[in-house]
Amino acid sequence: MTTAPAPLGTIDPFFQNAAKEEELMQVRDKIQEFCNALDAMRPLVHDTLEGMLIASLGTAAPLVTACWAAFDGVIHVAPKLIEWYNDVCQWVWAPQNLLDLATAMQPAYDKATECKQALVRSAMPADKLWEGVAVDAYYAHIEKHNASASDVEACVKSMMDAIRDAGSAGIIATYVALGALVAALLALISGLVALIPPATPAGAGLIIAGIGGFAAIIAALGAFAQSQVGTVTAMQSKLDGTLRSNNFPGGTWPRAESKALVTAVESVGGWSY
């Protein structure tokens, strides 16, 4: 005998990165502190640069001006580091969230599978004594709902697959980009080391090139992400079509109506759709 399953509890998806957000924000604050320190050092660096260069090279106004302009350029672009750090954090963690979402959909898929498997004649044997058009209509009803449940199962599966694919592709792209980011980061560090005069202009050039590398990588990731949108949109379009197919007349689950119950108990004739 078929029995009603226990009600499903509330599903509370677990997002792995939620707990780590605070740590990420702490790193961002450190970068902000670095940028603030760079800005605060501006007058001191100016005076030191001027003093060092004049002391070692005599009157070297053009070089001092060049160093000053280079240092100023670094201060100008440094705040972009915060912006790109946030972008990188999102790229590292957001695709993982999509994978977590796909995982959270598993109970929905399991329920849909369970539903489909429950809607078969052998699971609902009702024809030991009951016979005729009424029991036939009952099984026809089961069959119709089995087809609908199969469609729901397929829809949930396609959603899981599309979301998981988008998340996986995002993670792969992020790992590839991280390699390039490390190279850009090394350029930044080399530039910072070279900021000491008289190589300041060359150091500033390295830093600005490194930051430019960050920007290019983030832009490339953004362009890649757009390609994933097409996959998810195609899934949604297909799902809409499935939920309006013959298995869902009028976009709803099949609904049966009594044909003859009102006349007499003996003339129960089944249902129409």
């Binding site: 005998m1 078929t2 399953p5 499903l8 329920k111 809607l119 009702a126 449940a149």
Partner: peptide, 30 residues
């Protein structure tokens, strides 16, 4: 007995479908 089985079968079917909806709605809200 057949009617009882058929009735309970439908109730079970209703519960399965409802739970599928509950699961989806939970994820949707999430």
């Amino acid at each position: 007995g057949d009617f009882k089985v058929a009735y309970e079968g439908l109730v079970a079917e209703q519960a399965y479908v409802r739970d599928t909806g509950v699961a989806q709605a939970s994820v949707s809200r999430a």
